[in-house]
Design a binder for these strands. Structure first.
Lengths: 113, 113
DNA sequence: CCATTGATTCCAGAATAATGGAACTATGGT
DNA sequence: ACCATAGTTCCATTATTCTGGAATCAATGG
């Protein structure tokens, strides 16, 4: 995952409406949610929500699938995991440290915690 | 960790200079780095870097300690872990899912993965 | 106490992001 | 073909963030 893409993902999540929407999708899991539903529960105008969902989709954090009249949005968990891993890559130059001992990082990164 | 603070942390990381600086601090670990060093390696004017470091500090992602003429910045790992946990809280409403099986979440959150 | 080095603050211009009204597209029902 | 519903795109306004020159503050050495 390269720098630019990470920035884009972080920026996508760094906005109240988008963070709420994303977290709702995380909770919804495989079932996903439609914009209509989200607009209702989050109390956001449809066009504004659409704008923000596009940001999330563009960052690859959510996927869209049309189902008849509706469009179902789902959180993209792989993308989130990749993002989390990036932040602690090579932490402490390999020395034992305070980062989550259960290793967000894949084994090939230098972090030994 | 509340919503507003999470937004602030994500926004702090969603900027190229700040993400570079933060990752450098993550790698540096307990030793930390001074603004002077970072300005050199990152190729950023001192005042601009200072502005960005303040953003990171304000979000609680880094700490500062004065050591004689220098100020040593260090990454705050606890804060990062809290941030990562927030993103996948209650994922999939408790159903088994694709989120990191090694559980970024503390045990009391519903995610069973 | 003055000079030097390391770092921050002040400021104003430039760039980027967020908002919501109105118009548009797509699907399905009658 | 027509209408209703679900979502998206367009656009202009507003608000926020980024940048770097100049001035300032803090600590040390002569």
């Amino acid at each position: 995952m390269e720098q630019m893409h990470v920035i884009q993902s972080l920026a996508a999540l760094a906005q109240p409406i988008r963070l709420d929407a994303f977290r709702a999708l995380v909770v919804a899991g495989q079932a996903g949610l439609t914009p209509g539903r989200m607009a209702g529960t989050l109390g956001v105008p449809a066009n504004t929500l659409s704008f923000h969902l596009k940001e999330l989709a563009h960052a690859g954090l959510v996927t869209q699938e049309r189902v008849s009249r509706n469009i179902v949005y789902r959180a993209n968990f792989e993308q989130v995991n990749a993002l989390l891993g990036y932040l602690t890559e090579n932490c402490c130059a390999g020395a034992p440290c305070a980062v989550n001992p259960c290793a967000v990082n894949p084994p090939d990164t230098a972090c030994a915690c």
